[in-house]
Amino acid sequence: MQLIPCPWCGPRDDAEFHYGAEAHVVRPAVPADCSDAEWEAYLYLRRNTKGPFAERWMHTNGCRRWFNVIRDTYTHEIFASYKPGEPMPDIAQLTAKKDA
C-alpha cells in the first residue's frame, strides 16, 4: 500500500488511485501522418524500467485528475509528482539528491 502524492489532494493511499503506465507518451498531433510502426509504438510499446520511472496515475476515488509521478518501480520510492503539462523533472538529478 503505497502513499501516492496527488498534486491536488496531497498524499493518499494507493487504493484511491488508478495506474496509468508510462507518462509522456504523447498522442501524435496528426495521426494520419504516422507510419504503421509509429502508430504501433504509440499504441503498445512502453518502457519496462526497473528503477526511477515517469508514470501516470489517476486519483480515481478522489479528485479524478490525472498526474505524473517519478517512482522507483523496484523500491517503490517516490521522488516527485507533477501535473500534466508540466515538464518531466530530471530523474538523474532527483535520484542523485537522495544519495547525497
Partner: peptide, 9 residues
C-alpha cells in the same frame, strides 16, 4: 502488528 507493507503502511 503482522504486516509491514509499502511506505510505512
Amino acid at each position: 502488528v503482522h504486516a509491514y507493507l509499502d511506505h510505512n503502511y
